[in-house]
Design a protein around this nucleic acid. Structure first.
Lengths: 245, 245
DNA sequence: CACGTTCTACCATTGAATGGAAGGTGCGTT
DNA sequence: AACGCACCTTCCATTCAATGGTAGAACGTG
């Protein structure tokens, strides 16, 4: 045995170590980390020690491992969505202030909407911000707003791969939703997670009219007023797009 | 030559690649990246390609390199400050709402305050949120609030290393500021960056009375009202600490 | 059209990465 | 108090993955 009995490179292993943390978990025991990353304990230990030396990980006493503050800093400083967030933030604040609703901003990654920023509704404790959270395209207004404005090819590809694990939604329903969204220019969707909330989202386009994000709100069922919400969102979305150009 | 003519490990190099991005820069040309990371072009190219294969980096056509969306997601999902931010967010929102001021949350990293979260003042465009930004301890209210509640040893160590690049502040002045801060339980500091603003910060302590963060506001000079601000901040800080226990 | 620049691919060389084994350490149990 | 267990940490001979100079491809430019 020498370099990697399992036939993977050092880079692969570094990635596996970072990916080993399950969602929302900040601390892992070294043994468990090695397990999850599929690495021999001594290899995991060596990698973690090296990475923690540079501050990308944090190896505490007793073998507790966390992501390093330095890694968090580096990634957020040079985030690939930095320009988008910078452009969007003032508009999101406006919406939060004027409409007093939860505002969120998402981008498309694979067949899911990835939430990049989220401002919670003033005064409401519900709807905890899930920045860096994901939602499948077909059950989120942001996801539908994003997908409905992608190229025909990508949409076809998506529908081909489509399969609802819950089995509640068929590809045809999704096709219909996408068509409707594309035609209307916004998406409204009864909350699938919380039955008492609605999601409304609109696409954000850059200078070249390419849809790069979705801007949305989550509102209590009782306060659902499309007439007020949609124009406000669309105006903000255009503002963001202009800012990006 | 074989493995690394420069005597560094693969892990070192991966770290250097990620660290190569200057603050606020999201895109780098491959050649420039190799340059900044101090790597031979072909090595840099290989590493970037491997990393982008896993989504930690994003190697676009023409050799443009960015941090990967997946890396951003992983780091923010499992952020080492997740518990702190989750506990602090509702209180920060309260302050933003009640006092209508810029609120921020910082932790101590080395001899600097690292800003972990920041809510901008409603309606104000100024004071752009600099999440993941840093400020030296001696010129930020958050930094002073943090350092003034650390152990005697750490403070001594800090003062020993202290050296103001600008040469405006002496170690003795900082010593005085720290002593005052420790005694008062809060810090007020005339904005060093912007002369028209004040910073006020208080320490956030966990269940064991260890100071783990600083909660602060940045207010326009004209609206400086310590009587209203300090108690609100202290109350919120205690609330956050309780939440963490 | 030639030249400079940058990206990408190739491949023989070799020392850095590997992981089993052994030694600590702390904790809970008998 | 002694034992057992689970986990962390270190060591080191083996060997294959990482290395980077070189060369070619793909641009853009004067």
């Amino acid at each position: 045995m020498a370099n990697s009995a399992s036939g993977d490179s050092v880079v692969d292993r570094v990635v596996r170590v970072i990916e080993a943390f399950p969602e929302g978990v900040t601390t892992l025991q070294l043994t468990e980390l090695a397990d999850r990353a599929g690495l021999p304990l001594s290899s995991a230990h060596r990698l973690v020690r090296q990475l923690s030396h540079h501050g990308l990980l944090d190896l505490g006493a007793g073998g507790t491992v966390r992501l390093g503050l330095r890694l968090w800093e580096l990634v957020n400083r040079n985030s690939p969505t930095l320009a988008l967030r910078t452009a969007a933030m003032p508009f999101m604040e406006d919406i939060q202030q004027v409409l007093n609703q939860n505002v969120n901003l998402a981008v498309l990654d694979g067949w899911e909407a990835l939430f990049v920023e989220r401002l919670s509704r003033r005064g409401s404790v519900a709807n905890r911000a899930q920045i860096a959270g994901r939602m499948p395209v077909h059950i989120s207004s942001a996801g539908l707003a994003l997908m409905s404005h992608q190229s025909r090819e990508l949409q076809a590809e998506y529908l081909r791969h489509f399969n609802d694990p819950a089995g509640k939604v068929s590809a045809d329903v999704v096709r219909h939703l996408l068509a409707e969204a594309a035609q209307q220019g916004y998406v409204q969707l009864a909350g699938v997670v919380d039955p008492d909330t609605w999601g409304i989202a609109v696409p954000v386009m850059n200078g070249k009219r390419k849809t790069i994000a979705a801007l949305g709100v989550v509102v209590p069922l009782a306060e659902m007023r499309l007439q007020a919400l949609v124009p406000a969102l669309q105006t903000a979305a255009r503002g963001i797009g202009r800012q990006l150009a």
